[in-house]
C-alpha cells in the first residue's frame, strides 16, 4: 500500500465521502449530541474508536466465516450482532482496565451500539472490496470525518443560541436547516481526488 493510496483513501473518507454530509449515515447522534462542542468531541472520539475496532472484527468474520460458507447475504444481520456485542465487551473491558477512558467516553459508548454509521462502514468495506489494512484505515478515517462534521455542526449550533430566528424554527428545525447548508458546502468536495 503506497503513501499516495493511503492519502487518497483518507481524503475520500474524510471529505469527499463524508459519512454525515454526503452519505447521510449516523444522523441520529449527529443531531442528538451536537448541542455543545465538548460533548460532540467525546462522541466523535468514541465513534472513531468503535468504527476502527468494529471494522477489523467484521472483516475477519466476513472473510473467514461468511465467505468460506458462502453466506454473504447474511452480512447485515451478522455485522449487527458483532457490533452490538463488541461494543458491550469493549465497555466491560474499559470499565475494568482503563477507567479514565471509560469515564471520558461515558454514555456515548453504549449509544454507538445502534449507530448506523458503524454498520455502514462495515458493509461499505465489503462492497468496496477493501483488504484488512484498507478496511481499518477507511473506518478510522470515516470516524475522523464524522468527528469533523459533528464538531463543525456543534460550533454552529452554539452560536445559534444567540441568533434571532422565527419561533417556529426553534430547536430541531433550525438545526436541520443548518445541517443541510453544511451538507451543501461539503458537496463542493465532490470533484476532489488525488491521482
Amino acid at each position: 500500500m503506497t503513501f499516495a493510496s493511503i492519502l487518497s483513501l483518507s481524503l475520500a473518507a474524510i471529505l469527499v465521502q463524508n459519512f454525515i454530509f454526503v452519505k447521510f449515515l449516523g444522523i441520529c447522534p449527529f443531531l442528538g449530541v451536537s448541542k455543545k462542542t465538548d460533548t460532540a468531541v467525546g462522541m466523535g472520539l468514541a465513534v472513531i474508536f468503535v468504527m476502527t475496532v468494529a471494522s477489523s472484527v467484521t472483516y475477519i468474520v466476513n472473510e473467514f466465516v461468511l465467505v468460506k460458507l458462502d453466506l454473504m447475504y447474511m452480512q447485515t444481520v451478522v455485522f449487527i450482532l458483532i457490533i452490538a456485542s463488541l461494543v458491550q465487551f469493549v465497555e466491560l473491558f474499559l470499565m475494568k482496565m482503563i477507567p479514565s477512558l471509560y469515564k471520558a467516553l461515558g454514555i456515548y459508548l453504549p449509544l454507538i451500539t445502534t449507530n448506523c454509521a458503524v454498520l455502514g462502514v462495515a458493509l461499505l468495506n465489503v462492497t468496496n472490496q477493501y483488504n484488512f489494512i484498507e478496511s481499518v484505515l477507511y473506518a478510522c478515517m470515516s470516524g475522523v470525518g464524522f468527528t469533523i462534521a459533528i464538531i463543525l455542526f456543534s460550533s454552529v449550533r452554539e452560536h445559534l443560541e444567540y441568533a434571532k430566528y422565527p419561533k417556529a424554527f426553534e430547536g430541531f428545525p433550525i438545526a436541520l436547516v443548518t445541517a443541510s447548508l453544511l451538507s451543501i458546502a461539503f458537496m463542493g468536495f465532490q470533484g476532489l481526488s488525488i491521482f
Binding site: 466465516v65 460458507l69 447474511m74 451478522v78 450482532l81 458483532i82 466491560l92 473491558f93
Partner: peptide
C-alpha cells in the same frame, strides 16, 4: 445460515458472559 448465526450468537454471548 441458521446454524452459523446461532453459533456466532452463542460465541459472542459466551464472550460477554466471560467478559
Amino acid at each position: 445460515a441458521v446454524l452459523t448465526l446461532t453459533i456466532l450468537g452463542l460465541l459472542f454471548g459466551l464472550l460477554l458472559a466471560v467478559g
